[in-house]
Design a protein around this nucleic acid. Structure first.
Length: 203
DNA sequence: TGGACGATCCCCT
DNA sequence: GGGGATCGTCCAT
């Protein structure tokens, strides 16, 4: 791969979640399973930290949220609503309880496998069905991310993030976060303006 | 030990 | 636009 697509170094993740959230927009999430390579451009994210009543880490470290307290650059995957998984990028130093939820990606490579993984998806409108990856649980299903991927080191070979497209500030929108009660006033959601895979472009 | 609820999605009306 | 699916986690009893 060219220099443009270099894997993000550990140092990228060792910053507060608001900064990492913004910087993640335009980067490429990569999943490798054998010879298969799935790639999606990150277009929507949300930040969470330990002082934040909406965060899983708010009430301290537990078995469920343990990975959130690891050092930046790991994947925190949680199970919710009895049937869905969501993936977060852990940020900051060891012990801080910070993460960035990946809410949407634009499919770049491996779309046939993503469609197969999203088996419940019935209608497929050409050229690409945005329904494939325009939500946090949808993209996990498309990328085959579940319980077993919790704690994955993003500097490894299985799941990682590379540099991608530079998104200028003028193309970044900011809003309150989706689907939470406590801490709903915080505008800690970031997304790429006009991108067709953003989950709720009107918010 | 039990019950309420959740960083969601999909189908039905 | 609304509700059901479905279960791990947390907190109150």
């Amino acid at each position: 791969m060219s220099a443009t697509y270099r894997k993000l170094p550990r140092s990228f993740y060792l910053h507060p979640p608001l900064r990492v959230a913004r910087d993640l927009l335009g980067t490429y999430l990569v999943r490798r399973v054998g010879t298969i390579r799935l790639v999606g451009k990150i277009v929507e994210v949300e930040a969470y930290d330990e002082s934040d009543p909406a965060s899983h880490s708010y009430r301290g470290r537990t078995r469920r949220n343990n990975v959130m307290f690891w050092k930046g650059g790991h994947l925190y995957v949680y199970f919710t609503y009895g049937m869905h998984f969501c993936a977060n990028v852990v940020t900051g130093l060891e012990g801080r309880g910070e993460a960035v939820l990946i809410r949407a990606v634009e499919p770049i490579d491996g779309l046939d496998v993503m469609r197969r993984n999203r088996s419940r998806e019935k209608k497929s409108a050409p050229p690409v069905n945005k329904n494939l990856t325009n939500g946090p649980a949808k993209l996990c299903e498309a990328f085959g991310i579940g319980r077993e991927e919790n704690g994955t080191d993003l500097l490894g070979e299985e799941i990682y993030i590379t540099q991608g497209e530079e998104i200028p500030d003028s193309k970044i929108a900011r809003s309150t976060r989706i689907g939470i009660r406590n801490g709903r006033e915080k505008r800690w959601r970031f997304y790429v303006k006009g991108n067709g895979w953003v989950s709720k472009p009107w918010l």
